Simulated scan of single mutants.
Amino acid sequence: MQDIFSQVRACQLCHDSLPLGANPIIQGSERARIVIIGQAPGIKAHQSSTPFNDASGKRLREWLAVSSQQFYDPSLFAIIPMAFCYPGKGKSGDLPPPSICAQTWHRSILATLRQSKLTLLIGQYAQKYYLTAASTLTANVSSCDYQNHHCLALPHPSPRNRFWLQKNPWFEQLKLPILQHRVEKLLAESS
Rank of each mutant, 00 (worst) to 15 (best):
I36T: 04
G38V: 02
L152W: 00
S190W: 03
D54A: 07
Q127L: 08
H15D: 15
L187S: 05
L187W: 01
S142D: 08
I26Q: 02
N53W: 15
M82C: 12
F171E: 06
A45G: 08
K58N: 05
K44P: 05
C144A: 07
R61F: 02
A102Y: 05
R9S: 07
K89H: 10
K58T: 13
Q2A: 13
Q147H: 13
I25A: 00
P97F: 04
M1Y: 09
A83R: 05
L95E: 06
R59T: 09
S56V: 04
S68G: 06
H106F: 11
L60I: 02
L174Q: 08
Q124Y: 10
I109T: 03
K185W: 07
Q47T: 10
E189V: 07
S29R: 00
S17M: 11
S158A: 10
H150K: 14
I26K: 03
K44F: 13
A45T: 03
S143I: 02
A55M: 14
A55L: 15
S17D: 13
G93F: 06
N161F: 14
L20D: 12
S49A: 15
A111C: 12
S49E: 14
K167W: 07
A126M: 13
H46D: 14
Y130N: 11
Q124V: 10
N23L: 11
L137R: 05
H156Y: 11
A111K: 15
P177V: 04
W63D: 05
K89G: 11
L131W: 06
C144V: 04
N168L: 07
P51Y: 07
Q39E: 15
Q124N: 08
D94T: 15
I25Q: 00
I178K: 06
L137C: 06
Q47K: 14
L165Q: 11
N140A: 08
L95A: 12
G90S: 05
A40P: 08
L76S: 02
A133P: 01
A78P: 05
Q180I: 02
T138C: 03
A134W: 05
L13I: 13
Q127W: 10
F163Y: 14
Q70K: 03
P96W: 11
L120H: 00
L95R: 15
